[in-house]
Amino acid sequence: MTTEPIRFDTKIAVLLRADVAPWQELNVTSFLIAGIAAAHPDLIGEPYTDADETVYLPLLRQPVVVLSGDRERLSTTLGKAVSRGLATAIYTAQMFQTGHDEANRAVVRDVRRDDLDLVGIAVHGARNAVDKTCKGASLHP
C-alpha cells in the first residue's frame, strides 16, 4: 500500500453558483458527480472492505475540487468547457422544480446554452485544461 500523494493527470471540478441554498449545493454536487462517473467508469476505484470483511461500494479514484462563482462565471466556464471538449455535466435552476430524470432533460432541452440558468457544472479532463477552464472561480467556502 502506497501512502505517498498521487498527482493525477486528470482533474474533476464542480463549480456551484454562490447564491444557492446549502441543501441545493449538496444535491447539485451529487447529481453532477454521478454524471461524470457514469461517463467515465475508469474514474471508479475498487470496492472497499473493512476488517470484518464487510464490502462497501467503490468511490472515485481521485479528489473532486469544489468551486464557487456567480451566474456569469458559471456561464463563462460552461462555454470554455464545451469549446475545449471537456466532459461536462450541468444542473439548472429549473431542475429543482422537476421530479425525475426525463423532466430534467426536458427543461434543459427547451433552453439555448447561453440562456441556461445554471446552478452547477462539473468538468473532467486533463488537469491543465480543467484549471484553465475554471480560472477565476473561487474555492467553495
Rank of each mutant, 00 (worst) to 15 (best):
T2C: 10
T2D: 15
T2M: 11
T3K: 08
F8K: 03
F8G: 02
D9H: 09
D9F: 05
T10Y: 01
V14E: 02
L16S: 01
D19W: 06
D19G: 02
D19S: 11
A21Q: 13
P22W: 05
W23N: 10
W23Y: 13
Q24E: 14
L26M: 12
L26A: 14
N27A: 07
V28F: 05
T29S: 11
L32Y: 01
G35E: 08
G35D: 06
I36F: 01
I36S: 00
A37K: 00
A38C: 05
A39C: 06
P41W: 02
L43C: 03
L43P: 01
I44N: 02
I44Q: 02
G45H: 07
P47I: 08
P47V: 10
Y48N: 10
T49F: 03
D50A: 10
A51M: 12
A51K: 12
T54R: 11
T54C: 07
V55T: 15
Y56N: 08
L59M: 13
L60F: 07
L60E: 06
L60V: 07
R61V: 07
Q62D: 05
V65G: 04
V66Q: 05
V66L: 12
G69R: 01
R71E: 10
E72I: 07
E72N: 11
S75W: 02
T76F: 05
T76H: 09
L78V: 08
K80C: 04
K80S: 11
K80F: 10
K80R: 15
A81L: 03
R84T: 00
G85Q: 09
L86E: 01
A87H: 10
A87F: 03
A87W: 02
A87P: 04
I90W: 00
A93C: 07
Q94P: 04
M95G: 06
T98D: 09
G99A: 11
G99Q: 09
H100Y: 12
D101S: 13
E102H: 11
N104S: 13
N104A: 11
R105Y: 14
A106Q: 15
V108Q: 14
R109E: 15
D110C: 09
V111T: 15
R113Y: 09
D114I: 11
D115H: 13
D115P: 04
L118H: 03
I121W: 03
A122D: 04
G125I: 01
R127Y: 08
N128I: 13
A129F: 01
V130L: 02
V130I: 05
D131S: 08
D131V: 06
D131L: 13
K132F: 10
C134R: 00
C134V: 14
K135W: 13
G136H: 12
L139E: 10
H140N: 13
H140R: 15
H140D: 07
P141Y: 13
P141D: 10
P141K: 08
